[in-house]
Design a protein around this nucleic acid. Structure first.
Length: 720
DNA sequence: CGGCCTTAGTTTTTT
DNA sequence: ACTAAGGCCG
């Protein structure tokens, strides 16, 4: 057999990983070191050389995108459909197992998945049920806690709350919430994982079955695994299994959501005989950028250790721009992007990265003013839109009348005269008799305990749902969806919405019908499920793209977190200021500070060719003018790798980097503050210098004409 | 029931 | 400063 394609284009370290003998292996893959290639070729190696059965391979990622990419690349490499292989996200795989084994997992057959938004709503209901004040017991806080416990594999019953009243209440909320989920036949994201772990741990037969089956387990982004995910991996591999984990401790940026960097750090202790390989050759960035990233991350302690290198070019220095304020910062970045585009670059090759999403606004304004199309990542996803969630809630009620979250969502959407009073009544009855809202409604109506108006409205709603169910039985999913949207009155409801978004919303609803069509024939891994259940699970597990028009050539705006895994020729990282980056909520705790530094490391290593960092000397924050200090991270980048760019001569604050200022690298022969003469504008003073070579620009304050930006090469300035 | 006003919070995000 | 969400009133 010809195995050349599998070993082609691999460096020594990559080849060692791909061809390693079965057994626990940890691959420390630096940014841009070809980790996806290694994962893909490893799978190909297992399938061909090791003659592994596709059936025996399980590859786990964190995002749907990563899973899809891996599958596509395997199919491309091996030229066949990668069927039989299990490739998916932790949640997708857990979901699949729970659908197969819903009985053993003690779930209802048509259990539904709660997304983050549904979860908060449900917790809010639970709080009311416990008669806890929402002011004191913020639902979001409680959700945060519950999720953190689930991430750690803890049930309410496991938590020791002896001496802490606050904790005790949260545990009570957790227990009540667990019960509510149970009654409603819903599971949240954390539950998918926790339930699966319990299933594999407590059901010896099933555990043994899957351990025997998945002889080869591969994990991407291993540094981001939380405790439950780690427990899942241990359960599925056993002690001596073939586990191939790829990750980078220096890119662990999700500690705040339960990820345990220790998982990658102590891999060798948990999997005896484990080997470690390092991928340190980088194929993405210039040497300057890598040197900067290496120097920065060297300030962290307890690293597994790794040093990126390249045999590519050294590259240009990193520009550091000290902006006068946040608007000036945006102006500068946008001008640079414009110049890049004028020189033939694509807008989509430019990324503006920031620590917090609020920073995007100023950039958006500047980009609009400059008529540059852009795309902001991380907005509302398709399946998270209110009108879509309303439609899905109807569908969920069709699938499962006990789904209280959905019931509450649409019982009065569109408004049909069912108010808070009626609902309170319903909730009370549901609680007393431990039944779902749907049954509570039926009983209240049967017992005639409601005022006539409310009773009519409620009866109309129940009848509507029953009618929808009857009229759509046996029809294809897209027809069901279209029917529900139309006859529940959602389309009309959305159209009369007056903020001008009505038509957009109607279009989204139509798009939902198209999305449903894709589930009329189920992919093999979902075989046996009802199309409706599969569609609803998909909506929860894969919320869709944030923002449309991915294909248009536009400037990319995103948080540093969302930039992980991506690369761009031109990267701008804005807001290198103390309290913003590192964020003030993280700068006190050394562990959190290190995570911030890793975030900076992730940011720097996104850049392929050119990197520009900026900070503002003033910034508007929460309506207040603040005077931030440059970020400590700037000081951790060796000065010889950077080049200060200053737009103004009036910078008054101390430099971020002590020592001699490398003045705005200029081959124009001009000096800040120097006097010059222009053929038509006359005499003036140099205010600013920017860029170099053919693109060097200079700002001059002319006595007569005022301040002007000139391209040095054309301006014919002479020194006075 | 819906519109308006007050009030509180304001890091990062996937599933 | 801005926004989102809850409370209150018509």
């Amino acid at each position: 057999m010809d195995i050349t394609p599998i070993l082609e284009h691999l460096n020594d370290a990559q080849r060692a990983a791909v061809t390693a003998p079965p057994g626990p292996l940890r691959v420390l893959a630096g940014a841009g070191s070809g980790k996806t290639r290694v994962l893909v070729q490893r799978i190909a190696w297992l399938l061909t050389v090791e003659q592994a059965n596709p059936w025996s391979i399980l590859a786990v990622t964190f995002t749907n995108k990563a899973a899809a990419e891996m599958r596509a690349r395997i199919e491309q490499l091996l030229e066949f459909r990668a069927s039989g292989l299990w490739i998916g996200t932790f949640h997708g795989i857990a979901h699949r197992l729970l659908r197969y084994h819903w009985r053993e997992a003690r779930l209802s057959q048509h259990f539904q998945i709660l997304d983050a938004d549904d979860q908060v709503r449900l917790v809010r209901r639970v709080l009311r049920g416990l008669e806890l004040d929402e002011k004191t017991w913020a639902p979001k806080q409680a959700v945060w806690r519950i999720n953190a416990w689930k991430d750690d594999g803890l049930r309410a019953a496991h938590i020791d709350d002896r001496d802490d009243p606050l904790l005790r209440t949260h545990v009570r909320i957790y227990a009540a919430y667990e019960a509510a989920c149970e009654r409603n036949g819903v599971v949240d994201f954390g539950e998918l994982l926790l339930r699966t772990v319990e299933l594999l741990r407590d059901d010896a037969t099933l555990g043994e079955h899957y351990r025997a089956r998945f002889r080869h387990v591969l994990v991407d982004e291993f540094q981001d695994t939380n405790q439950v995910q780690y427990a899942f991996l241990k359960l599925i591999t056993g002690q001596r299994g073939d586990v191939f984990v790829v990750g980078d401790d220096d890119q662990a940026i999700y500690g705040w959501r339960g990820a345990r960097i220790e998982n990658i750090q102590r891999f060798e202790q948990d999997f005896p005989g484990a080997l470690t390989l390092r991928l340190e050759q980088n194929y993405r960035s210039t040497a300057v950028i890598l040197d900067a990233a290496n120097a920065l991350i060297a300030h962290n302690r307890g690293r597994l250790g790794k040093r990126l290198w390249t045999d590519g070019s050294r590259g240009e220095p990193i520009d550091v721009y000290a902006a006068y304020n946040d608007y000036d910062e945006a102006r500068f970045v946008v001008e640079r992007i414009q110049r890049w585009v004028e020189e033939g670059g694509r807008r989509a090759e430019c990324a503006v990265l920031y620590r917090s999403n609020a920073q995007s606004r100023v950039f958006e304004e500047s980009l609009i003013a400059a008529a540059l199309p852009y795309r902001v990542y991380g907005g509302l996803r398709f399946f998270e839109r209110a009108e879509i969630k309303d439609a899905l809630a109807y569908l969920r009620l069709l699938a499962n009348r006990d789904d209280d979250a959905s019931f509450e969502r649409v019982v009065n959407t569109p408004t049909r005269g069912i108010g808070e009073r009626t609902l309170d009544e319903l909730r009370g009855v549901a609680r007393e008799r431990s039944v779902a809202l749907w049954q509570a409604a039926e009983r209240l109506l049967a017992e005639r305990r409601l005022a006539a108006r409310a009773a009519n409205a409620l009866a109309a709603f129940l009848a509507l749902v029953e009618r929808l169910a009857r009229d759509t039985a046996e029809r294809p999913l897209s027809a069901v969806t279209a029917h529900v949207i139309e006859h529940a009155g959602l389309l009309a409801h959305v159209r009369k919405d007056k903020d001008g978004k009505g038509e957009d919303r109607a279009e989204n609803l139509e798009e939902l019908v198209n999305a449903a069509r894709a589930f009329e024939t189920l992919p093999e891994e979902l075989e046996g499920m009802r199309p409706l259940d599969a569609f609803l699970a998909h909506a929860a597990l894969e919320a869709g793209e944030g923002q449309a028009e991915a294909w248009e050539d536009c400037v990319q705006l995103m948080s540093l977190h969302s930039a992980k895994g991506l690369e761009f020729p031109q990267v701008f990282i804005a807001g290198f200021e103390e309290d913003l980056f590192p964020h003030y909520l993280s700068s006190q705790d050394p562990e959190k500070l290190e995570e911030e530094r890793r975030l900076a490391y992730v940011g720097l290593t996104r850049a392929q060719r050119h990197l520009t960092l900026s900070f503002a000397e003033r910034r508007r924050l929460h309506g207040q003018e603040i005077y931030p200090r440059p970020s400590r991270f700037l000081r951790e980048i060796p000065a010889e790798l950077t080049r200060d760019v200053r737009a103004r001569a009036t910078v008054s604050r101390p430099l971020y980097n002590p020592g001699p200022l490398v003045q705005a690298e200029s081959d124009t022969g001009l000096q800040l503050g120097g006097r010059v003469r222009h053929p038509s504008f006359g005499e003036g003073v140099v205010l600013a210098l920017e860029g170099a070579g053919a693109h060097a620009r200079v700002q001059v304050n002319f006595k007569a004409a005022g301040a002007k930006w000139l391209v040095a090469a054309y301006a014919k300035l002479e020194k006075v």
